[in-house]
């Protein structure tokens, strides 16, 4: 079984003209093992999305090394992405921007199927697998709701026959009632095809629902890592404890959670 993503002491810096560089990820190390669902949590700006971009070859590493099933990940720039890395796919945060508005849904799923045309599920099966009616295949993205679009984006990623799926805040722009639903769907479709899943979110309650293991990041560093329940019941780091304390509880009493200081 393939689909192992390894971050080994990776550092990512963003240079800004005329201003000091920002270290978004600072010597972060962790791995996503084959078939595993890992939740990557942390507050905004802690480097979660940068790690996702690094894994997809969208930003270069200033130090350390990222590999996918042994293949080093480097930015592809204007070249085509290396074939070995195509089995790593991403679902983006904004479902309104991640589908080409001018192409029908079926055509966009076909583009993704083209990577492994022989083994890829049919467009109809893909739509069914994410809970959409295959009859909707001829529609354009604007004819779908945000949640439906995110399902299509998941179907597109799955059409490539991925070994690892990265969800970069895939539920952040969805209605609260849909978040758990889409997150669970993502876990289910990934596990059904032996795909590992790296689920990035700042929503800890949803991560708890779907992740086997949790990685906690703070200011570019990995501060805690462990099985989900263990991190939840016995968080070791003070930062993790504060994060967990900040989960809002709907008790009807108007309790405002303690906000984790940056």
């Amino acid at each position: 079984m393939a689909g192992e993503l390894v971050f080994d002491e990776v550092t990512v810096r963003y240079g800004r003209p005329g201003r000091p560089t920002v270290t978004a990820v600072d010597r972060a190390s962790f791995r996503v093992r084959p078939g595993e669902v890992v939740g990557l949590v942390g507050e905004s700006g802690c480097g979660k999305s940068t790690l996702a971009k690094l894994a997809c070859g969208l930003v270069p590493a200033a130090g350390g090394r990222a590999t996918f099933d042994g293949t080093p990940i480097t930015p592809y720039g204007l070249r085509k992405r290396p074939a070995q890395l195509l089995r790593l796919q991403m679902v983006f945060q904004n479902p309104y921007a991640s589908l080409n508005p001018r192409r029908r849904v079926a055509a966009q799923l076909q583009d993704a199927r083209a990577i492994h045309p022989a083994t890829a599920p049919s467009v109809d099966d893909l739509l069914r697998s994410v809970g959409l009616d295959p009859a909707l295949r001829t529609r354009y993205p604007h004819q779908f709701s945000g949640g439906q679009r995110q399902r299509i984006a998941i179907a597109r990623a799955m059409a490539t026959g991925p070994d690892l799926l990265i969800g970069d805040e895939p539920i952040a722009s969805l209605d609260a009632s849909l978040q758990a639903q889409v997150a669970t769907l993502m876990r289910d479709v990934a596990l059904a095809s032996d795909t590992s899943l790296l689920f990035i979110s700042h929503d800890l309650s949803v991560v708890r629902l779907i992740a086997d293991r949790v990685v906690v990041m703070q200011a570019g560093r990995v501060v805690e890592e462990g099985p989900t329940e263990q991190v939840w019941s016995a968080p070791q780091e003070a930062y993790t404890q504060r994060l967990l304390a900040a989960i809002p509880l709907a008790d009807g009493l108007g309790t405002i959670p303690d906000v984790a200081p940056a």
Partner: peptide
Amino acid sequence: REFVVAGRLLGIGW
């Protein structure tokens, strides 16, 4: 835009 990046992630050239 994300759909252009998503397209490139599917392995197509520029």
